[in-house]
Nucleic acid binder design. Structure first.
Lengths: 145, 145
DNA sequence: TAAGATTGACTTATCAATCTTA
DNA sequence: TAAGATTGATAAGTCAATCTTA
């Protein structure tokens, strides 16, 4: 049986869904970048090293905690090292530990309140029905294939 | 006044919001890629040239209809030209017209039902309250700064 | 000049191939 | 060997600088 084209209404919903998180993410990332020069991925990496590792975290653990593959993280860390944000240190068992530099720590500390304020500002515009929907959809789309 | 860190619940909502559209988008794009070899951006460009331009569209009009800047579109068209999907033709007034090649048209035709089925499959999982929320949030985040 | 487009440099993301070493 | 990580190629996106031509 032939698949009918998407209706105008279906397209409207699909477009809204596609852009909803992306727009929010871009806005928050811009605030952080203006305040500190950190990109979104920079901020994510620094936060986790600080929180999970107390400033010193196994690279593989870091990758898992972000849901990134090892290659993506390796490339990102290479760029962050060039920017002076992190240091890498080989240890036993082929592992690599990631450490914040002083500059990385300082920028993270500056970025955190900006991030929190900006995320909270977005979330404050949502009512409880909208929040429920977001959590439900995220769960139902995250499951199965 | 100091900004309080985000609570666990705030983070949960923020993460759901960030991933909700991205995950859906990736899933739909993968289906199209498997069936036709077209990427998401390829499919978007081809669809619009076919629909708005009847197979022949001014580059600037195309960029506006996608919400892309001219540079992004130019790079994308260069790649699509290398893949044999489109042709460019200079016309009066410094403009450039974009045309589908036969291969571009054929792949678009193959991709359309896959795209429609896959989007519809996602949307069918949403109840009307969730759809309302999506449309509302998209509107409220799309506004103001 | 200025509208329309291209280019180059750089960041991010994905995949497959390759290194390194316990 | 195989776990842990790096590298290289390519696609995508952004921004500023540079054509090109009416």
């Amino acid at each position: 049986m032939p698949t009918k084209p998407l209706s105008h209404q279906e397209l409207r919903i699909w477009n809204a869904l596609k852009h909803i998180g992306q727009d929010a993410l871009v806005r928050v990332a811009q605030g952080i970048a203006e305040a500190t020069g950190l990109s979104g991925p920079d901020f994510g990496v620094l936060s986790r090293v600080a929180d999970l590792g107390n400033g010193d975290l196994r690279q593989q653990t870091l990758a898992e905690s972000m849901g990134w593959d090892k290659s993506r993280l390796s490339h990102q860390l290479t760029r962050m090292h060039k920017r002076g944000l992190i240091r890498r240190r080989s240890v036993e068992d082929r592992a690599v530990m990631v450490t914040l530099t002083r500059s990385g720590r300082e920028k993270l500390d500056s970025a955190r309140p900006v991030h929190a304020a900006s995320v909270r500002n977005l979330l404050d515009r949502l009512n409880s029905a909208q929040i429920d929907s977001i959590l439900q959809i995220s769960e139902s789309l995250g499951q199965d294939k």
